[in-house]
């Protein structure tokens, strides 16, 4: 059972991808819905909104505990902002479970949002079409964090132990390759 954090944002599109892959999932809005999960997807949306809701409904500590004790996580965009131990532009609270620094809104306003095809070499993926929507970028990371992919010079995807975090949206494109690769890589299928 995969959980999809559903406080706000692009959670339905992640759900649709999992449906296409025949993977069971449920939405997570409250702490008890974290119980018994094999993996968790943290979607994009507005990180400030998600933080507010996670704090109000007492999800921060249970989320942090689950992730620290080994729950595999795949985070996109705002989800990655929630994971990083340092958030810039401006700084804000986070779960602090991924030893990396992320800069919010790194490309400017929506006018600068874009589509691009990227390679995820460690996973053997080439020319995967993905969307960057008011996207952040990783600006620093501890040496043990693996860089999964870059766009030009920017780090746009990282992995550390069971945590995978990307700055873009594979779920908005009409394919399932990225989710399938994550599920295989974490031995969830």
């Amino acid at each position: 059972m995969i959980g999809v954090l559903a406080l706000q944002g692009g959670y339905e599109r992640h759900g649709k991808v999992l449906e296409k892959l025949g993977v069971a999932y449920r939405y997570v809005k409250l702490p008890h819905q974290l119980e018994g999960l094999d993996g968790l997807i943290m979607p994009g949306g507005e990180s400030t909104t998600m933080l507010k809701l996670a704090n109000t409904f007492s999800l921060m500590e249970p989320l942090r505990a689950c992730i620290q004790t080994g729950l595999p996580v795949f985070a996109t965009c705002a989800g990655s902002i929630l994971l990083c131990d340092t958030v810039l532009h401006p700084s804000q609270q986070s779960l602090g479970v991924l030893p990396a620094t992320i800069e919010r809104n790194a490309y400017g306003s929506q006018r600068e949002s874009f589509y691009a095809e990227i390679d995820v070499e460690p996973w053997g993926l080439e020319q995967v079409g993905v969307y960057f929507i008011r996207a952040p970028r990783f600006v620093a990371h501890e040496p043990q964090v693996q860089v999964l992919c870059r766009f030009n010079q920017d780090i746009i995807g990282v992995q550390w132990r069971h945590i995978t975090a990307v700055t873009f949206h594979p779920e908005l494109a009409d394919h399932t390759v990225m989710h399938r690769a994550w599920l295989h890589q974490q031995a969830l299928v």
Binding site: Q8, G9, Y11, S113, H169
Partner: peptide
């Protein structure tokens, strides 16, 4: 790319 932002505003 435009509807991408609409998607991110969902549930808000």
């Amino acid at each position: 790319v435009k509807t991408g932002l609409s998607e991110m505003l969902k549930g808000g």
